[in-house]
């Protein structure tokens, strides 16, 4: 039993080790302890999806996890998408299709889309809705996001050929 514990994680390929309070959420761990502030916090009760990251390849709410629960895990955040400033095809698609306005929810959307397109390279409208139904955007009205996801799928398919 402890109130403080060492957490070792790999985030975007980099290993980190921090001794933290056990009550610290993964979102606060990433943002405050590691300085990875691209993951945003919108509601802290798991509804808005802004804080979505990938843990061991799966999208999760980083506000609904303790950092200690992620001990040993591989995590990917929005900072892990672009390569030395070159946008990932998903990011490129969101820019070209105007899939963002204020951009606060966007990191969560990008990570959810990353997971979706990883397992389903050519999703239907229905499948896109299903995977993004837990991500709230207050600006775009989702239409440009829908286009962005389809464009991203096409870009990724093109890259594979």
């Amino acid at each position: 039993m402890t109130m403080q514990q060492v957490v070792k994680v790999t985030v975007n390929g980099v290993s980190y080790e921090r001794n933290v309070e056990v009550r610290l959420t993964l979102a606060d761990f990433l943002r405050v302890e590691l300085g990875l502030t691209g993951t945003h916090v919108g509601c802290e009760h798991g509804v808005c999806g802004a804080c979505t990251v990938l843990m061991n390849g799966r999208s999760v709410r980083s506000c609904l996890m303790l950092a200690v629960q992620a001990d040993g895990a591989e995590i990917m955040t929005v900072e892990g998408l672009a390569d030395d400033g070159r946008l990932h095809p998903i990011q490129q698609a969101f820019m070209e299709e105007h899939g963002l306005q204020c951009g606060f929810c966007t990191p969560g959307f990008l990570m959810a889309v990353y997971e979706l397109l990883g397992s389903n390279p050519d999703p239907s409208d229905e499948e896109i809705r299903e995977s993004l139904g837990g991500q709230i955007c207050r600006c775009t009205g989702y239409q440009s996001i829908m286009r962005s996801v389809k464009s991203a799928a096409a870009k990724l398919a093109g890259a594979r050929v």
Binding site: G49, R61, M65, G133, G134
Partner: peptide, 12 residues
């Protein structure tokens, strides 16, 4: 199971 919340919740 598909009626439970959203994929990100079901993943955990």
């Amino acid at each position: 199971t598909r009626f439970i919340a959203h994929p990100q919740i079901r993943n955990r």
